[in-house]
């Protein structure tokens, strides 16, 4: 079924029903459908970088994945790991974590159920 994606930013939160799971660009589930868009939910989703939501049912929509989103997530990951720097002098641990997370997302992309 074809879905209509609407901009979350401009969507009036009152009473709109989201009918398809909301995921971020890496495929992480943010809100399980069906759910009613409330102001707090809208704020949270915007804060997580969600720009569009589906307002018609499309349960079989494949999760989207793009490299730009992955690089953005890895930048955020490096930021979350920043306190480790003085203790991880060669940066080996941080490097290992970032590469493992990169690999895990890239591996997920090739799983058939996550393919576009």
């Amino acid at each position: 079924m074809k879905c209509v994606a609407v901009s979350l930013e401009t969507l009036d939160p009152e009473g709109v029903e989201i009918v398809s799971d909301v995921t971020d660009s890496l495929g992480r589930l943010l809100a399980k459908a069906p759910c009613v868009l409330e102001p707090n939910l809208k704020k949270l989703l915007l804060a997580r970088g969600v720009r569009y939501v589906y307002i018609r049912s499309c349960a079989d929509t494949p999760r989207s994945f793009d490299n730009e989103a992955l690089e953005k997530e890895l930048e955020l990951l490096k930021k979350r790991l920043i306190l480790l720097a003085p203790h991880d002098r060669e940066g080996d641990f941080v490097k290992m974590v970032v590469e493992t997370v990169r690999g895990a997302y890239q591996k997920e992309e090739v799983l058939p159920e996550h393919r576009d």
Binding site: D21, V22, L26, G27, L29, L30, A31, C35, L41, L44
Partner: peptide, 8 residues
């Protein structure tokens, strides 16, 4: 990946 940020 299957855990939802928002639960309804």
């Amino acid at each position: 990946l299957g855990i939802s940020l928002i639960e309804t």
